[in-house]
Nucleic acid binder design. Sequence first.
DNA 1: ATGGACCTAACAAACGTTCAGTAGGTACAT
DNA 2: ATGTACCTACTGAACGTTTGTTAGGTCCAT
Lengths: 194, 194
Amino acid sequence: MSSKEKILGTAIVLFAQKGYSGLSMRQLAQAVDMSVAAIYHHFPDKNTLYLEAVRFAFSDKEQVFAQVWESGCSAEEKLGGFIRSLIDVMLQDRDFHRLMQREILEADPERMQLLAQGIFKRQFSLLMQLATELAPEQDAQLVATSIIGLAKCYVEYQPLLKNFPGWKPKHEMPEVIAAHITELLLNSLRAKTA
Amino acid sequence: MSSKEKILGTAIVLFAQKGYSGLSMRQLAQAVDMSVAAIYHHFPDKNTLYLEAVRFAFSDKEQVFAQVWESGCSAEEKLGGFIRSLIDVMLQDRDFHRLMQREILEADPERMQLLAQGIFKRQFSLLMQLATELAPEQDAQLVATSIIGLAKCYVEYQPLLKNFPGWKPKHEMPEVIAAHITELLLNSLRAKTA
DNA sequence: ATGGACCTAACAAACGTTCAGTAGGTACAT
DNA sequence: ATGTACCTACTGAACGTTTGTTAGGTCCAT
C-alpha cells in the first residue's frame, strides 16, 4: 500500500468520524505516522484531500451491485437482491455510510453534482429501469428514491431505534430489514400493476 | 426576545449550516451582534451552548402533529395527514431538519437516548399505534420507521435528486411527495390485510 | 452599592499552509 | 567509475491566523 493510499484510507475513517473541520491535518499526520508536510507533498490542500478521500471511498462499491444487475433473476428477485446488497454495504462499511451522509448533509451544489454524475448515476439509472419494469405507470425517480430511502433509514436510525418502544434485536439483522422493505415495496408495486 | 433566545435561535441556524466545529464563537458573536464574552456570560462553554440549542430547536415541534392525532379522520386519512405534516415541517424548517440529521450522524449514545426519550418518543408511539391499526399483523416499529424514513429521505436527497435523470420540478412539491409516499404505504398495508 | 449585562483586550493552544533542506534513487555525460 | 543533474518522498521549523476561553473593567437599572 502506497503512502498516498494509506493517507486516503485513514482520512476516510477520520473524516467520517469527525467531519471536515473536526479533523486537523496534524491529527491525520499523527494517525498515518508522517509529518504534516508529507501529506502536503501528496495533496495540495485539505479540501482536495477530502474530495479525493470521498471519491476513494466510493471507488470500490460500484462492483458490489454488478452481480445483482447481471444475474438472470426476475425483476422482483433483482429488487430483493439490490436492497439486501445496499443494506449490507452500509452496515458493513459504516465509514462509507457516514461519509456519504455528511456529503449529503453539507449539500454543496457543486459536490452534489459530482456525487450524482460521477458516482451514483449508473446505479440510480439501473434502479429506475428496474422500477419501470416493476411498475410502468409510476414515476420511476420517485420509486427509486423510495427504495434507497427505505434501505438507508434503517441503517441511519439504528442508534435511535434502540431507545424506542417495540424495539427487538432482530431489527438490526440485515436479512430482516431487507425482507421487510422488499415485501413492503413489492406489495405496493404489485397492487398498482394488478 | 431576550439576548439568550437570540443567541440560541442564531446558533441553531449556524450549527445546522456549519456543524459544531465549523462554527466559531466569534462568528456566532458577530451574527448576533454581540461580543464573544457576552455569549460566555449566558453559556458556560461552547458545548453547553450547542446542547441547549439542539433542545431549543426541538421544543416547539411537538404540537404540529397534535391536530393530526386529534382529528376524527379514519386511520388511512391520519396516515396521509401525518406524512404531509412531517414533510411540511422538514421542508419549512430546514435548520431543524439539518440539526436533527447532524445529531443522528454523530450518534452519541447518550444524546440518542435523550433525543428518543425526551423528544420523539410520544410521536413515535402514536405512529406505531396507527401502524398497528392499519396492518395489525406487521411489526409496528418496522412500519413506523419506514414511514418516517420515506418522508425524510425526500427532503434529505433533494439537492442530490436534481442531478439525476428523470427529475421533474414537481418532485420538490410537498403534496406530490406526500401523495406518493402515502399511496405506496397504503397500497402495501392494504394488500397485506386483505 | 449591588449585580446582571456587556465590553475590550489578551491568553495559550491549535489551525492550515509553506519553506528550505535532506536522504535515496535513477539517468546520463564524461 | 564518477561526478552532475534531477527526481520523489519526506522532515523540522516556522509563518500568520483563528480557535476557545478568561480576566478586568464599564454601564445601567434597581
